[in-house]
């Protein structure tokens, strides 16, 4: 698919690399994001990478000022100029300067997880739904090759793709009013981790002692789009040791 560029209102541009969840499409998202990170476009406020899109937020006033200044006098008219059109040109130029997207590499982040019991109340349900034992669910979840596609929904919340189909489980019929921070869940073919205590409908199979959202740190999110993730089962003692170590 050709890269599609379209407006999100009068202050942002969506750069669309495709319409599906696909490692190749996401490779282009990562490559373009890395280029924006290294060399931000003029007037850029920030960008949001997602599965198949990068949305760039820009300051139309700053873009206008940079190109035209504010020479309007009383009763005079403002010189016509479209910050959006100009921005699309900048984006096209940048896209053309990029080569073939490199195959996904990214750093690997190990996530210790205490599975089942009180901290993973839905592990049994996931096992039943897939005709597996709880131990098999744990082994499958911890053996997957995962990729963080995007951070969204809540600060530091990773949308993780690549979970083996054989432990996929639909969301709970009715969402829980409160899911503790660190909970590891499954929703369909997705797996994710709740960074903050929030309501939610995912099947909760365990908990990590790691803090995913760290407002005092830069960056404030433990995981970044493009990271690879490995879940590592830990015992209750190991879980406690992690918690104390990070406190």
């Amino acid at each position: 698919m050709k890269v599609h560029v379209e407006p999100l209102g009068d202050h942002a541009v969506v750069v669309r690399f495709g319409t599906s969840i696909d490692p190749h499409i996401h490779g282009q998202v990562k490559q373009f994001s890395a280029s924006l990170e290294q060399d931000p476009l003029p007037g850029m406020v920030e960008y949001i990478p997602a599965y198949a899109t990068v949305t760039i937020f820009y300051d139309p006033v700053a873009v206008y000022e940079r190109n035209k200044g504010w020479q309007r006098t009383d009763g005079g008219s403002r010189p016509p100029f479209s910050p959006y059109e100009w921005y699309c040109g900048q984006i096209r130029e940048r896209l053309n300067s990029l080569g073939e997207a490199a195959p996904a590499s990214g750093r690997v982040v190990k996530i210790p997880v205490l599975y089942g019991g009180e901290v993973g109340p839905d592990l049994g349900e996931v096992a039943r739904h897939n005709n597996l034992t709880e131990q098999e669910v744990i082994e499958t979840h911890a053996s997957g090759d995962y990729q963080v596609y995007m951070i969204g929904f809540a600060p530091g919340f990773p949308y993780i793709g690549g979970m083996p189909e054989k432990i996929a489980t639909p969301r709970r019929q009715s969402p829980r009013l409160s899911i503790p921070a660190g909970s590891v869940g499954i929703a369909g073919k997705q797996t994710g981790i709740y960074p903050l205590e929030t309501p939610g409908g995912w099947q909760i199979i365990g908990r990590t002692p790691l803090r995913l959202f760290r407002p005092e740190a830069d960056p404030p999110s433990l995981l970044q789009a493009g990271d690879r993730v490995r879940f590592v089962p830990v015992t209750e003692e190991e879980f406690r040791a992690y918690e104390e170590g990070s406190a």
Partner: peptide, 29 residues
Amino acid sequence: LISEAVSFGTVQVPAEGKPIVLLADRQTT
């Protein structure tokens, strides 16, 4: 639709057909 960025003033429509206008404390995607 696979998730993508939203903005201040985005009007989105969930399956039941009632529009939601996203404002200052909107989610990012």
